[in-house]
C-alpha cells in the first residue's frame, strides 16, 4: 500500500484583501477515508477545499495529492479528482443528459457512464429537462453526478446538501454511503450540518475562523472532556437576570443561553449527577419548567468550544 496519505495539507494559509480566511491548517486523508470539514458560515471551509482542488493557491504551506503537488501535475490530478463547488450553475439551456455528456467527454468517457450516473443520482425523470428548470435539489444531484463521472479516487464536495429538504439530503447521503461501501474513494466534504458529519464521515475536522478547533472520530470528539456524553437541557419557570449567576455556583458547568432562556449541562452519569443537580436547583430556588435528556452532539461540542451554535 502507499505510504503517503491521499491528501496531505501542511500548515496552509490564505488571506483575501481584508480577511484571513485560512490560518494554518494541517490535515490528512487516507485512502477510502471520509472526512468532514465542519464549521459555521465563513469558517474558511470553501477556501480550504478550493486550495485542495487546485483552484486557489495557498499563500503559505503545502498541499500534496497522492504525493504530488498541483504545480505541473494538473492534468494527472484532474483525472482522479471529482468535485462539486459550493454553487455552480451549469449551462442553462442544456438538458441533464447533455450536460453529463459534455463533462463525460472531458474525461474521455462515453454515453454508458452517463446513463449509469443518471441511475446513481436518480435523475431518470429529468434527463430531458433543461438545467435552468431543475429544482435546487435536482441541481445538487446533477453536480454530484458530474463529480462522480470519472469514478474519482478523490471526491471533494463543498456543502453538497445545503438548501436541500431532509428527504433530498437523505438521498444524497445514501448515494455517498453506497460509494463508501463499494469503492476506495476518499472524500472530503464540507458542511455545517453536524448530522451530516456524524452520519457519513469517519473523521471530523471542526474549523472556525480559519483554524482547526478540534478533530477526530465522532467518538473521540464527543468523549473529549472525560466521558461526559450525556446532555440535559432545561427551562425554568422563574428565569431572571440573576439566573446565570446562580447557575455558575453549581459544581456542574452549566451553560445558560439568555436569549433562549435555556440551560444546558453535561453529565457523566445520570444516576449520580441528576440527584445532585436537582438538589442544587432546589437550594437555589430555581423551579424547573421542562427537562430534556439527550445524547451529546457536535453542536454541544462546538458551543463548549466557541460559545456559539454551528448554525447561527
Amino acid at each position: 500500500m502507499n505510504s503517503f496519505p491521499v491528501i496531505d495539507v501542511r500548515d496552509v494559509y490564505k488571506s483575501f484583501k481584508s480577511v484571513d480566511a485560512v490560518k494554518g491548517i494541517d490535515m490528512h486523508v487516507d485512502r477510502g477515508q471520509f472526512v468532514a470539514v465542519l464549521g459555521p458560515n465563513g469558517a474558511g471551509k470553501t477556501t480550504l477545499v478550493e486550495m485542495i482542488e487546485g483552484i486557489r493557491k495557498p499563500d503559505k504551506g503545502e498541499i500534496q495529492i497522492m504525493g504530488k503537488k498541483w504545480k505541473g501535475n494538473e492534468d494527472e490530478l484532474h483525472q482522479i479528482i471529482g468535485l462539486s463547488l459550493q454553487e455552480t450553475k451549469f449551462i442553462d439551456k442544456l438538458n441533464v443528459r447533455e450536460t453529463l455528456r459534455l463533462f463525460a467527454g472531458f474525461f474521455g468517457l462515453g454515453g454508458e457512464r452517463v446513463e449509469e450516473i443518471i441511475q446513481i443520482v436518480g435523475l431518470e425523470d429529468k434527463i430531458k429537462s433543461w438545467v435552468v428548470n431543475l429544482s435546487g435539489g435536482q441541481r445538487q444531484k446533477l453536480a454530484l453526478g458530474i463529480a462522480l463521472l470519472n469514478k474519482p479516487k478523490i471526491l471533494l464536495l463543498d456543502e453538497p446538501t445545503t438548501g436541500l429538504d431532509p428527504a433530498a439530503r437523505q438521498e444524497v447521503w445514501t448515494i455517498l454511503r453506497k460509494l463508501r461501501d463499494k469503492s476506495e474513494t476518499s472524500l472530503i466534504l464540507t458542511t455545517h450540518y453536524m448530522e451530516e458529519a456524524e452520519r457519513l464521515c469517519d473523521f471530523i475536522i471542526i474549523i472556525d475562523k480559519g483554524k482547526i478547533l478540534k478533530q477526530g472520530t465522532l467518538e473521540q470528539l464527543l468523549n473529549g472532556d472525560g466521558s461526559k456524553r450525556k446532555v440535559l437541557e432545561f427551562t425554568l419557570d422563574n428565569p431572571g437576570s440573576s439566573t446565570e449567576k446562580l447557575l455558575n455556583d453549581s459544581r456542574f458547568r452549566i451553560k445558560w443561553e439568555g436569549e433562549n432562556e435555556k440551560g444546558i449541562v453535561e453529565f457523566a452519569s445520570w444516576e449520580e449527577d441528576i440527584p445532585v443537580f436537582m438538589s442544587f436547583l432546589k437550594k437555589s430556588e430555581l423551579r424547573l419548567k421542562n427537562l430534556e435528556f439527550r445524547k451529546k452532539t457536535l453542536d454541544d461540542l462546538f458551543i463548549s468550544l466557541t460559545g456559539r451554535h454551528l448554525n447561527d
Binding site: 482542488e53 484532474h78 450553475k89 474525461f107
Partner: peptide
C-alpha cells in the same frame, strides 16, 4: 463559476 468547474476537469 461554470468556467472554474470546467477547468477543474481534464
Amino acid at each position: 463559476k461554470l468556467l472554474r468547474r470546467m477547468v477543474a476537469t481534464p
